[in-house]
Design a protein around this nucleic acid. Sequence first.
DNA 1: GCAAAAGTGTTGTGTCTACACCCATGT
DNA 2: ACATGGGTGTAGACACAACACTTTTGC
Lengths: 248, 248
Amino acid sequence: MAKSTRVQSPRHEALAVVLQVRDGKLKVLLWERAREPFLGEWALPGGFLDAGETLERSIRRHLAAKVDVRELSHLEQLETCSDPRRHPTAWVVATAYLGLVPADLDPEVPEDTAWHTVGGLPELAFDHEAIALAGRERLRAKLSYTNIGFALASPSFTISELRALYRAALGHDVSATNLQRVLVRRRLLEPTGEQRPPGRSGGRPAAVFRFRRRELAVTDQFAVLRPPGSHESGTQKAEGDPRGLGNL
Amino acid sequence: MAKSTRVQSPRHEALAVVLQVRDGKLKVLLWERAREPFLGEWALPGGFLDAGETLERSIRRHLAAKVDVRELSHLEQLETCSDPRRHPTAWVVATAYLGLVPADLDPEVPEDTAWHTVGGLPELAFDHEAIALAGRERLRAKLSYTNIGFALASPSFTISELRALYRAALGHDVSATNLQRVLVRRRLLEPTGEQRPPGRSGGRPAAVFRFRRRELAVTDQFAVLRPPGSHESGTQKAEGDPRGLGNL
DNA sequence: GCAAAAGTGTTGTGTCTACACCCATGT
DNA sequence: ACATGGGTGTAGACACAACACTTTTGC
């Protein structure tokens, strides 16, 4: 029956949940809409997919107008939203990405964009609130079982600084003691050898650390139901161990 | 410059990686293509998105022709593939889903579809091999930290039967002893009270279990970096505990 | 009785939280 | 000196894998 039916396709847009810890809070970059629908409301940045580009390339292109692409320390696909009612007048499918910006950068953003605290967002256009919250959840989960912290942190940092980032992203307090132990045991962090002098109020100088790898890596593989024999002998963290956690 | 440019949109298709354990092996449902491109090669089932439907609804509709929809015990979105070269002659974006079928069912499938072992796939059309493998990885990961086993298993089963499913899906042997302990400790399984009589070769009759919930639930929340105070006293799993692992 | 299959007891290891304590610096 | 922030030592709580052992059946 569909013989002479004209092919109908949705328009496809890429959206980004760009997160950064600023002033001790997890914030998301929002853009104030300049046209209907939802004129004047806040929305996630993004735009339509062009012929010949991938979604990832598309979102990088659209973001380049707002945040310098090179300042994105991590970018991953979140989900694709296809409810036909998500746009009041058009048929638009959206693929959302999660982007992270390290805390030491303060990208220039245009007048009509601003950073908003993820807890306590204003009313957002379309289904963008749900998408923004999904981005936060993804980040929170990955902080537990990957090295994604590298994307929130500057190239080197003290444990206190890192703790503040984890606290802001996770939404609860984090013990500096245990954070250091977990991340060092899993071999995510290594000391640079440098020290940071204390502030005016005194205190012991802090050791400076860096993430060993600055690309996403899963570090808590096989939480349970490991393959047999993967228990092995004790404390194999003998520096250059090939198998084990460090990789994969 | 794009003033009078005609709007271009990709066509959007939904694909499904439908997995089931059959004959002790993890298999994926494939469809033999009846037209170019890739005529005669194996491909994931799916089809184009229609106006007015969501992607999830679309993939359920397309699958209904191959597997009865009601036989899908779980369906979740995997990823969206947008490389413009993924289709040789057209611009097609694909959103892939992971679907699971419980092991006790043997859905009627048409002539041109068949179950293929995921390890040792033939050459697949388009980028479907990568998508199929991504589906398997998602399943493997979720077997460790969610109750997704319910979607592979029949409504009730013995530990040995469940073990065979986990072994097939994970690709390595699984100890029945520890599988039972982990799943009971996490309160995923409960005994039905029934027993299964042994086979001709004797043996103790097996207790029959069921999954307590048959929708996806995360059971290993907060692998690490838990909020402070979540240690609490011993074994707080006192049925109706509000906080903690069971939910969210 | 004996083999087969299911299930329990127990031990050892590793990882995590929590908290006490020691260290290095500024005033 | 002593307050302040950084870092280590250590103990307790689980969760897990591995393996020995007991239970219940068929032959």
